[in-house]
Design a protein around this nucleic acid. Structure first.
Length: 422
RNA sequence: CGGGGCAUGGUGUAACGGCUAACAUAUUCGCUUUGGGAGCGAACGAUUCUGGGUUCGAAUCCCAGUGCCCCGACCA
């Protein structure tokens, strides 16, 4: 990709109407664009990161049997009245709208338990139809009283929401554990593994606990207590002696941390299957309620947390798994030999399946370096007069700043492949 | 939703109630330059958030609205 053609631009100054690190950097580097408070558009760079996060989620969710669907944003009032959740008293963050012709009311989905349960009822009647796990990656709308922290808490945001439908408690628990593992894998793969803790939180009506995935961050709104030994954590909301005893944790070993909730898994029991009469016939022809669970991750929030957690004072630092490009190749000067060497290297890289952002712009070296640091692509290649004369390429790693020079002719496939997996 | 703050070219800022609203950056053109946001010259770019009011005169003072940020409350 030619940087001169890339639809976006870095800014020298940070926007004045943002304070949070994630929004400051993502806007300054040209990944996102602010539309309104709590509402952000994705530009090409941001979308590439976003899509990579979504694809990692897809891989892990499908590995445990999830099947992707795409439900509607518009919500049917009648469906939500079945659980009572159409009510503005019960749900305070609905956005609702109506047709200016018939006056028909629509809700803009803030979650999708109701419509999906209603939908599944049309397709599940027998024990043979179960278990199933259905997920989507979909825009949600929540009328937050106060959007804040950049992309971390918006009025419009995308969420991966997965719902499981099981025949029995035991079957549900098996899936629940798989989901827990899948989530652990996801956060590890996007580069948040070290700082993300499986956290016990309140469970609601149908189970004692739910589990949150909380990433340590000063920008977080939650307080968690991390057990230094196991890495498990307890949300402050549920921390008491009984809980500690339950979990076999000692108060002395806990460390208080601020954290961001990046994922959450929840046993729903029959909370939704009952009002919708979602039942199946078992082997004996007896009707039984379906046991449900729900599992959410916000890919945009994940992107924000990665920026919060991994950036430095020069800019963003992307993990290779979700970087918009694997390599940022800076061409210094426009001498014929330099251009040729650059293009040759790009061909080689792209043949190895490496995504390259090629800074072909006619701007000063300093500006290219500064932009490169800001954008945060993990490996920076520099091809200049000096390098070409020596038959070399300079490689600098964004993460630790380590600079090496490699022989132009020795770009082995092995070497290149590791750039995709740093 | 309660409290506080802010609103000026695309972006970031300046301007005692008083000249043609200034500077930087970005953008465009020319020349020079190419290893850490380069230099010189020129050009483009604003209904000072909106609506009222005070005043001979308002970016500036007052009122209302809107938007944005922060603190708090809230957060399946």
């Amino acid at each position: 990709m030619l940087q001169s053609h890339l639809f976006t631009k870095t800014r020298k100054e940070t926007p004045k109407d943002e304070v949070s690190k994630n929004a400051l950097l993502l806007i300054q580097a040209g990944f996102i664009h602010k539309e309104m408070a709590g509402v952000y558009s994705y530009l090409p760079l941001g979308l590439r990161v976003f899509n990579k996060i979504c694809n990692i989620i897809r891989e892990e969710v499908e590995a445990i049997g999830g099947q992707e669907v795409f439900l509607t944003v518009f919500q049917d009032k009648a469906v939500w009245e079945k659980t009572g959740r159409w009510s503005d008293e019960l749900v305070d963050n609905w956005f609702k709208t109506e047709s200016k012709y018939g006056g028909q009311q629509y809700g803009l989905g803030f979650t999708h338990e109701e419509p999906l349960t209603a939908l599944v009822k049309d397709y599940v009647q027998s024990y043979r139809d179960l278990p199933i796990a259905i997920y989507q990656i979909q825009t949600k709308f929540r009328d937050e009283k106060r959007p804040k922290s950049g992309v971390m808490r918006g009025r419009e945001f995308v969420m991966k929401d997965l719902y499981s439908f099981s025949r029995t408690e035991e079957e549900h628990n098996i899936f629940y554990e798989k989901a827990k593992q899948a989530y652990t894998n996801i956060f590890k793969r996007v580069g948040l593994g070290d700082k993300t803790h499986l956290t016990f939180s309140s469970g609601g009506t149908f189970s004692k606990y739910s589990h949150e995935f909380q990433t340590e961050s000063e920008s977080g709104e939650d307080i968690i207590y991390v057990d230094t030994k196991s890495g498990l954590a307890v949300n402050k909301e549920v921390l008491n002696d009984e809980v500690l005893k339950d979990l076999g944790l000692s108060r002395d070993a806990l460390i208080e941390k601020k954290a961001v909730e990046v994922g959450n898994i929840f046993s729903l029991g029959t909370r939704f299957s009952e009002p919708f009469e979602l039942v199946y016939s078992d082997e004996k022809g007896e009707k039984k309620p379906v046991i449900m669970g729900s599992y959410g991750i916000g890919p945009g929030r994940v992107m924000g947390v990665v920026v919060e957690t991994l950036s430095d004072d020069k800019g963003i630092i992307w993990p290779a798994s979700i970087t918009p490009f694997h390599v940022h190749l800076l061409r210094l000067g426009d001498k014929k030999e330099v251009v040729e060497a650059s293009e040759k290297t790009i061909t080689l890289l792209e043949q190895a399946g490496i995504e390259v952002l090629y800074d072909d712009r006619d701007v000063s070296a300093g500006e290219k370096f500064a932009d490169s640091d800001l954008l945060g692509i993990p490996a920076r290649f520099v091809i200049s007069d000096r390098m070409v004369a020596e038959g070399k390429i300079e490689v600098k790693m964004r993460k630790d700043g380590v600079v090496t020079t490699i022989d132009n002719s020795s770009l082995s496939l092995e070497y290149l492949n590791q750039l995709k997996d740093l």
